[in-house]
Amino acid sequence: MLKIIKVTTLSVLIAVTGCVSIPSEAPELSVELGKRIAAIEESNITLLNRFFDQKRKEVDKFIEEEWVPEFANHFFSNKTISDAWETIVSEDDKKQRLLFLVKTGPRLIKKINEKRLELIQPLDALERRIELKIREEYTQARAINNSITSFLLSASKVADNRNRYLEMVNTTDASIGRLIDETDDAVSVLIEKKDILEDKSERSQKFLGKVREIRDSI
């Protein structure tokens, strides 16, 4: 499971407000913390992107190994198509076989691509929504740290603003973790084979419904 790295300026606030005097190195340390916040933000975004890349691969595997065989079986169950194919096979006419594939191939590919788009697009949208949420939180963290850096030059201002900044620090690690877990569960609904009688389209609809719920909760 994806593990989002936690970083806040809360520890800095506690350290600063607990001191009677501010060390001369404190402003430089706060500036360095700002750089680390940016680096950890990008690490978290990279982890998020890799997580969703894996989920997309799992969806592709479901389409290739489960949905396509069932779709092909349904496609060739059409009597007109089935009769035409059996005639071509029995006559062993390579020209007619090629013509059949040329005519039916694009239709099959179009349906497969449509199904992939139907299942992948919601994941893409959810990934963008979570990434935006993460970036918003780090933007807030940087803003708070920038203010602390300035306030470190004046110990009295740090004390005066202690409570206000403690209230502003709003870590959303639990929230992001919940979104990741729910996304993982949604894809599991699609790819798990516990109930072999359950229709593939029904599992697809459950998956899409869960992804929509996650997206709407952000």
Rank of each mutant, 00 (worst) to 15 (best):
residue 138 Y to E: 07
residue 142 R to Q: 12
residue 141 A to Y: 09
residue 146 N to G: 15
residue 132 L to H: 12
residue 127 E to Q: 15
residue 135 R to I: 10
residue 137 E to P: 00
residue 136 E to G: 06
residue 130 I to C: 04
residue 147 S to T: 12
residue 113 N to H: 07
residue 144 I to D: 02
residue 133 K to I: 03
residue 118 E to Y: 05
residue 145 N to C: 02
residue 122 P to F: 07
residue 124 D to G: 02
residue 145 N to H: 02
residue 121 Q to M: 13
residue 134 I to E: 02
residue 119 L to T: 06
residue 138 Y to H: 13
residue 142 R to C: 08
residue 124 D to F: 08
residue 117 L to Q: 13
residue 131 E to T: 10
residue 137 E to R: 12
residue 121 Q to Y: 13
residue 121 Q to P: 00
residue 141 A to D: 08
residue 133 K to F: 14
residue 132 L to K: 14
residue 143 A to H: 04
residue 139 T to N: 11
residue 146 N to F: 11
residue 135 R to N: 11
residue 136 E to I: 08
residue 141 A to P: 00
residue 121 Q to D: 15
residue 143 A to F: 07
residue 115 K to L: 09
residue 139 T to P: 00
residue 119 L to S: 06
residue 141 A to W: 04
residue 138 Y to P: 08
residue 140 Q to V: 08
residue 117 L to S: 15
residue 126 L to C: 13
residue 115 K to F: 08
residue 118 E to H: 08
residue 129 R to L: 04
residue 119 L to R: 03
residue 135 R to M: 10
residue 148 I to G: 00
residue 118 E to P: 01
residue 149 T to P: 03
residue 123 L to T: 02
residue 123 L to E: 00
residue 120 I to F: 07
residue 136 E to K: 11
residue 123 L to F: 02
residue 118 E to C: 05
residue 126 L to R: 05
residue 123 L to Q: 01
